[in-house]
Amino acid sequence: MKLQNKPRIPLHSHSDLQLTSQIRRRLQSTGYAGLTSIWIEVHSGEVFLEGTVDSYFLKQMAQVRVLAMSDVRKVYNTIIVSSPGPCPK
């Protein structure tokens, strides 16, 4: 969004910034390198996850780890799986 032809920079509350840092540490602590590059945005306890991972397992792992946090109200997981495994028959 632009205001007077200048990009608008979203403002985050202190608690949103703290939660973003906690989520980043939580994803890094899994030991899965693919989760360290996930983009995280937090607005009033609602978490937006974006990025690309190599498997549906990692996508689900990110969501489960974030949902387990007490300050998270909702998770929007738009992570893309770049190379999904074979489809079950």
Results as ranks from 00 to 15, higher is better:
Ile9Tyr: 04
Ile38Pro: 01
Ala68Cys: 02
Thr30Cys: 00
Thr36Ile: 05
Gln60Asn: 13
Ala33Thr: 10
Val42Ile: 06
Gln4Ile: 02
Glu41Asp: 08
Arg24Gln: 08
Leu19Ile: 00
Leu17Glu: 13
Gln4Asp: 14
Ile40Ala: 01
Cys87Trp: 14
Ile40Asp: 00
Ile9Gly: 06
Asp71His: 08
Glu46Tyr: 06
Val66Ser: 00
Ser83Lys: 14
Ile23Met: 03
Pro84Gln: 03
Val75Tyr: 03
Ser37Met: 11
Val53Gly: 02
Ile80Trp: 10
Ser15Phe: 14
Gly45Pro: 07
Gly51Cys: 01
Gln28Pro: 06
Ser44Glu: 13
Ile80Cys: 11
Pro10Ala: 03
Arg73Tyr: 04
Val66Thr: 04
Arg24Cys: 03
Thr52His: 15
Ser44Val: 14
Val42Thr: 09
Ala33His: 13
Asn5Ala: 11
Leu17Cys: 13
Thr78Asn: 10
Asp54Tyr: 02
Leu27Ser: 03
Glu50Met: 11
Ser70Glu: 12
Gln4Phe: 12
Pro86Tyr: 04
Val64Lys: 10
Gln60Phe: 10
Leu11Cys: 12
Arg8Gly: 08
Ile23Ser: 00
Met69Gln: 07
Thr78Tyr: 09
Lys6His: 08
Gln28Ser: 15
Ile79Leu: 00
Ile79Lys: 04
Asp54Leu: 12
Asn5Arg: 09
Leu3Ala: 09
Arg25Phe: 14
Ala33Tyr: 15
Arg65Pro: 01
Val64Thr: 13
Leu49Cys: 00
Gly34Thr: 00
Ile79Arg: 07
Val53Tyr: 03
Val75Gln: 04
His14Met: 14
Gln28Met: 15
Val66Glu: 03
Arg26Cys: 07
Pro86Gln: 01
Ile38Asn: 00
Arg8Leu: 09
Val81Phe: 00
Gln63Gly: 04
Arg24Gly: 01
Ser55Phe: 11
Arg26Gln: 08
His43Asp: 14
Leu27His: 02
